[in-house]
Nucleic acid binder design. Structure first.
Length: 227
DNA sequence: GCATTAACAGCCG
DNA sequence: CGGCTGTTAATGC
């Protein structure tokens, strides 16, 4: 279990709960650290917790029918994930991998179900999150084949910097070019060149071991148009 | 063409 | 030193 203060810090949704609900939530959440490269869960697992990123960076990926790894999204500070598998009571459809040392807040299933049954604020949050993810998913299938390397990098970063799904991210993120490549489904070398293009376009600033952006919507636009 | 891997030099903490 | 970055060369779809 964690303190109420910690809960408020790592979970924006907790601010919408009543005091009683927040107390329940705090008692059902514990924290765990994952090392670089560690699997949080494998595709097909019954992963019986709902989890939020306290610090670090995780990647959702799956294996395509042709057998190669496909990255779906990156998640960073403030992002919560896993509700889809819990609500449908089905195995995980994705691998979840820590791209660097990552601390996760993990809620047990009974607490999640209690909040789902009793808390209006919790359900509002879930609906908003589903809505945002649906928008991302539609963008993904519509544009996947049309985007060049630069567009794919821009889109991966736009999702990562999206304050709806990653509420704690801000406009600066410690991430290496190799990690951006892993999220974009590209090699480090091509990612390096794409980042330079985006920097020249003025939508981000590439630093050593980090990226600063002006507005994540600029990246989103870049990631939905070829060019 | 465009992307990938391999290799290497430079840089920085 | 070790990790990150910038670049080039060889190879593949």
């Amino acid at each position: 279990m964690i303190s109420l203060e910690t809960l408020k810090q790592v979970a924006v949704w907790s601010k919408e709960l009543t005091p009683d609900e927040a107390e329940r939530a705090r008692r059902g959440v514990s924290e765990k650290t994952f090392g670089k490269g560690a699997y949080v869960s494998h595709q097909g697992d019954r992963f019986d917790v709902w989890a939020g990123v306290t610090s670090g960076l995780v990647k959702l990926s799956t294996v395509s029918d042709s057998g190669k790894q496909v990255s779906l999204a990156g998640l960073t500070t403030g992002a919560w994930f896993g509700e889809g598998s819990i609500l449908k009571n089905e195995p995980r459809r994705y691998d979840i991998v820590a791209l660097r040392e990552t601390r996760l807040a993990m809620m047990d299933l009974s607490t999640f179900n209690w909040l789902f049954e009793h808390s209006v604020g919790f359900n509002r949050f879930l609906v908003r999150q589903f809505n945002e993810r649906l928008g991302q998913f539609i963008g993904q299938v519509e544009n996947d084949r049309m985007l060049d390397a630069t567009g794919r990098v821009a889109r991966a970063l736009a999702y990562l910097f999206n304050p709806m799904t990653n509420p704690g991210v801000g406009c600066h993120l410690a991430i290496t070019q190799e990690e951006v490549g892993l999220l974009s489904g590209l090699s480090r070398q091509v990612t390096n060149q794409s980042l330079k293009v985006l920097e020249t376009a003025g939508v981000l600033r590439a630093e050593r071991g980090g990226i600063a952006i002006r507005d994540w919507r600029d990246l989103a636009k870049y990631g939905t148009m070829a060019g």
